Simulated scan of single mutants.
Amino acid sequence: MNTGTAARLDRIGRDGRFVVVPMDHGITLGAVRGLKDIEATIDAVTRGGADAVLTQKGIAPRVHDNRNGAGYVVHLNASTTIGPDANDKRMTGTVEEAVRAGADAVSFHINVGSDHEPDQITQLAEVCDDADRLGMPVLAMAYARGPGVDEHDAESLGHAVRLAEELGADVVKTAYSGDAGSFEHVVESTRLPVIIAGGEPEGDRATLDAVRGAMDAGGAGVSMGRSVFQHDDPEAIARAVAGVVHEDMTAADALREAGL
């Protein structure tokens, strides 16, 4: 890892642990709750302890004045839920554009096992090469998704995170397998820091239990979107998640300390 990449990686996490709040869902879902006034949401989650926020490049002007010194990640591909295939993520930006947008890192989504896996492998490899040349960290969002693929199967998730390392990513995000025991296999499949996605919100305790389980398995944190930015109190839930990730709290203690 070159010096620039290492320096920027420190801007999106702390001591090798990460609390990232992705808010790139405006392309995927539209201007849903939490994203219309994205400025207020960014202010809230970063006050709560999020290390970084993530958006598409066009939202960058709405990010910088509201992130309270937190890091910024620009996402480089997308699809919509109303299009013909949500797994068909298409390029929406370049590493150079992310640099111009003031990003500290870039991210890229790949669906391992989907019909679009071959193109996404090629694109992620190219993104990693461009990023390395410019000293920019890459967060690979590597999911096990496709016909007949169990999105929470530890073996498939282990394959997905290893693929991200093989292609040159610096951090990898994937789904949680459901329990700490099985997630250990996922973490052990790569030397990259492994962080978990939030997925569909299922309640505060379920969210924090998943974070605690991932950390107990050797995970490095979270990249949680809707569970945080659509919460009734985004600042409080960000504080609770950060308590588990950065202060090693139990789920119950983190929720109590956050007032939830």
Rank of each mutant, 00 (worst) to 15 (best):
V106P: 00
S182I: 01
N68H: 15
P193I: 07
F183N: 00
V222E: 01
H116V: 05
A44E: 09
V112L: 11
V95C: 11
V211C: 06
V149I: 15
Y143A: 06
S156N: 12
S177Q: 02
G26R: 14
A125S: 15
Y72Q: 07
L29C: 06
R162E: 07
S156F: 03
A105C: 11
N111T: 05
V222C: 11
L35P: 03
V241C: 11
N87D: 14
E39V: 04
D132C: 05
A220E: 00
T190P: 01
L35Y: 11
H246I: 12
E188M: 04
G16N: 11
G225M: 09
M249I: 02
V186T: 05
D10G: 13
A70D: 07
M136I: 15
V149L: 07
L9Y: 01
T55H: 06
M1G: 14
V222Y: 00
N87F: 12
D43V: 04
V99H: 07
A103W: 03
G198L: 05
A44L: 08
A86K: 14
G225D: 07
A254F: 06
G34M: 03
L255H: 01
V186N: 01
E165M: 06
M91E: 12
L9Q: 08
A144E: 05
A254R: 02
K89M: 06
G178T: 08
S156G: 14
V211A: 05
K89C: 04
E166C: 04
V63F: 08
G102M: 10
L255G: 01
R14Q: 13
N66E: 12
M141E: 08
G225E: 07
